[in-house]
C-alpha cells in the first residue's frame, strides 16, 4: 500500500518535472479565474448578512435568510422577477422563430450575390453596441423629431411618447432586439441547413416536390435538432435578459413593465449601496439561472446525445 503511494508521488514528481512548462502556461488563467470569478463568490455571504461596508464582510453579523425575506415581501422585487420572466417569455415567443425563418428564407434565395449581400447586411447590427441601438431607438421614437411620430402625425394620429409608456416598453425592447440579433442568430441555422445533403433535394425534385413542400418536408425537419437545442439553451437562459440594454431604455415611468431583477440589483446595490439586499437578489436570480441551465443541459444531453459544453 505505502509503496503504491510512494510510487504515485514519484510519478507525480516526474510528470511535474517533465511538464512544468505546461503548468506554467495554465497558471495565469487559473489565477485569473480564481481572482475574478471565484473570489467574488466569497462575497456571496453578504446575502446572508447585515452588511456594512465599514465593518467589512467578515465583521458584519449573520442574519440568516432575512434579506431574502425582505425581498419576497418587496413588491418591487416581485415585480422585477415577474417582469424578467415576462420579457424573456415574450422574447421566446416572438424573437426565437425569426432567425429560423430568416435562415430558411436565405436558403431559398437563388441569387448567390444577392444572398451574400443581404446576409452581410443583416449580420451587421449584431456588432453595433447597445448604446447605439438605444440611441437609434430614442431617435426614431422621439416625440418631436422621430420618424415614427412624424408618420403618425401625418396620418392624423396623435403623437406617442413611446419611451414613457409602460405598455410600449416590451414591444420596443423585443422589437429592437430582433432587429439587432435575428440576422446573426440565423447563422447557426444556416450552418445546419448547409449540412443537409443536396441529394435529398434532388431526389425530391425528381419526385415532383415544389419548393414550398421541400422547405416544409426537408429543410425544417433536418434542422429540427438544431432548433430544439437552441430552444433548450434559450429556456436555460430564461432569467438572463439584456439588462445592459434595459438600463439604457427604461426610466422610472416605465419601471412597471421594464424593471427586471438585474436592473433592480443595479439600482439597489450599485446606485443605492444596499449591498446585502442586492446581493441576495442577484443570488436568487443566479440560483434559478443555474437550475435552469443545469436542467436544460441535462435535457439536451438526452435529446441530442451531445451535451452543450
Amino acid at each position: 500500500m505505502t509503496s503504491r503511494f510512494v510510487g504515485y508521488f514519484k510519478r507525480l514528481g516526474e510528470d511535474l518535472r517533465r511538464d512544468w512548462q505546461l503548468y506554467l502556461l495554465v497558471l495565469p488563467m487559473i489565477l485569473w479565474f480564481l481572482l475574478f470569478l471565484y473570489k467574488p463568490m466569497e462575497g456571496l455571504q453578504i446575502a446572508f448578512k447585515d452588511f456594512s461596508p465599514f465593518r467589512g464582510i467578515s465583521g458584519s453579523p449573520w442574519v440568516g435568510l432575512e434579506n431574502f425575506q425582505t425581498l419576497l415581501e418587496d413588491q418591487i422585487f416581485i415585480r422585477a422577477f415577474l417582469n424578467t420572466i415576462a420579457i424573456s417569455g415574450l422574447g421566446l415567443i416572438f424573437a426565437f422563430p425569426v432567425p429560423i425563418i430568416l435562415a430558411v428564407m436565405f436558403n431559398e434565395l437563388q441569387n448567390e450575390f444577392g444572398r451574400r449581400v443581404s446576409q452581410t447586411i443583416v449580420y451587421l447590427p449584431h456588432f453595433i453596441s447597445v448604446v447605439i441601438v438605444a440611441g437609434i431607438v430614442i431617435n426614431l421614437l422621439s416625440p418631436t423629431t422621430g420618424v415614427v411620430n412624424l408618420i403618425l402625425s401625418s396620418l392624423g394620429l396623435d403623437r406617442i411618447y413611446f419611451l414613457t409608456q409602460p405598455e410600449w416598453f416590451r414591444t420596443i425592447f423585443i422589437g429592437s432586439n430582433i432587429w439587432k440579433e435575428a440576422g446573426f442568430e440565423s447563422i447557426v441555422y444556416l450552418a445546419a441547413i448547409a449540412g443537409i445533403s443536396p441529394t435529398l433535394y434532388e431526389s425530391a425534385r425528381v419526385d415532383g416536390a415544389s419548393r414550398w413542400q421541400m422547405m416544409w418536408r426537408i429543410t425544417l425537419p433536418c434542422i429540427l435538432p438544431t432548433i430544439i437545442i437552441m430552444l433548450i439553451i434559450r429556456i436555460g437562459n430564461l432569467v438572463e435578459v439584456g439588462f445592459e440594454y434595459i438600463i439604457l431604455l427604461y426610466q422610472p415611468a416605465t419601471y412597471r413593465t421594464a424593471d427586471v431583477v438585474s436592473t433592480y440589483v443595479y439600482r439597489t446595490g450599485l446606485q443605492g449601496t444596499q449591498y446585502d439586499l442586492a446581493t441576495a437578489a442577484g443570488l436568487f436570480n443566479a440560483v434559478i439561472a443555474f437550475a435552469l441551465v443545469f436542467t436544460a443541459n441535462r435535457i439536451s444531453r438526452k435529446v441530442s446525445s451531445t451535451s452543450l459544453w
Binding site: E42, G43, L44, Y275, A286
Partner: peptide, 13 residues
C-alpha cells in the same frame, strides 16, 4: 458559464 457571483460581489471584489 453556469454560475457567477453576480454584480455586487464582483464589484466589491
Amino acid at each position: 458559464l453556469w454560475f457567477n457571483a453576480g454584480m455586487i460581489p464582483f464589484f466589491l471584489n
